[in-house]
Every structure is written in C-alpha cells, then in structure tokens.
C-alpha cells in the first residue's frame, strides 16, 4: 500500500513540476494545486498507514485499550489544506488581475520587472 501511495505522491510532484514549468498562468496555478496535494499526501503516507481504530478512549479509562491511529498527521493535513485553499484562492485572483492589467497569460511576456 505504501508503494502505491509513494507512486501517487511521485506522480503528483512530477505533474506539479511539469505544470509549473509551462508558460501559461493557469497551468502555474494547477501546478501549485498539485504540489500542495502531493505534500499533503506525503505527510499522510510518511506518518504511517494503519488500519487501527480512531483514538477514542472509552469512558472511565485513561488510555485506549488497543493500538490506535495517530491523529496528528490528519490534523496537520487539515491545517495545510485550509492554508493552501486560502493561498491558492489568492493566487488565482492574482493571476486574473495580472491577466487584466498585462493582457497576456504567457509567463515569458511578464518579464518587464527583470533586468
């Protein structure tokens, strides 16, 4: 199972880099989306896949009776998803405004601030 997930993460990263290297503004955003998905899935996999039950402690007990799944990676991923959602929404608006003011979506033509 880990191998399958590792391949998916790899594919997401490869796709992200491919899209980031394209010249189109929208593909840039898609690349960033894929990148954040890849990172989230990577946290999920590297923290360990398990079939253990959720970490709920029965009433009156102080520790769970059986081995439980680690809730922390999921909390991390949830936080990261929320952050990437906000940031990508901003990036999308930014691209739209850039397109409006520069009248082009070709990144190679957005070079007037360099050199």
């Amino acid at each position: 199972m880990e191998i399958l997930f590792a391949l998916i993460v790899g594919a997401l990263y490869a796709g992200a880099v491919f899209c980031l290297l394209r010249r189109h503004l929208v593909k840039l955003i898609i690349g960033l989306v894929l990148l954040s998905h890849g990172a989230n899935l990577l946290i999920f996999v590297s923290a360990g896949l398990s079939r253990n039950p959720p970490p709920l402690i029965a009433a009156g007990k102080l520790i769970p009776e059986t081995a439980v799944a680690d809730p922390l990676p999921q909390a991390l991923i949830l936080t990261a998803i929320v952050i990437s959602f906000a940031v990508l929404a901003f990036a999308l608006i930014l691209c739209h405004r850039t397109y409006q003011s520069a009248k082009t979506d070709d990144i190679d033509e957005l070079r007037t601030t360099e050199l």
Binding site: A16, L20, L25, L28, L32, L35, S36, G38, A39, N40, L42, I43, F44, S46, A47, L72, P73, L76, A80, V87, L88, F90, A91, L94, C95, T98, A102, I107, L110, R111, T112, T113
Partner: peptide
C-alpha cells in the same frame, strides 16, 4: 508581475517545507 514570481516561488518553498515536515514527522 513581481507578485506572480514572489507568490509562486514562496508557495513552492512552502510545499517543500511541508513535505520535509511530513517526512521528518
């Protein structure tokens, strides 16, 4: 134009940072 470059590279760095955190955890 400046913001596009700044945003893209910083988000890319954040993605790497997050991946590194995941592996470290």
């Amino acid at each position: 134009e400046g913001a596009i470059k700044y945003v893209t590279l910083n988000l890319f760095a954040s993605g790497l940072f997050l991946a590194a955190i995941g592996i470290l955890y």
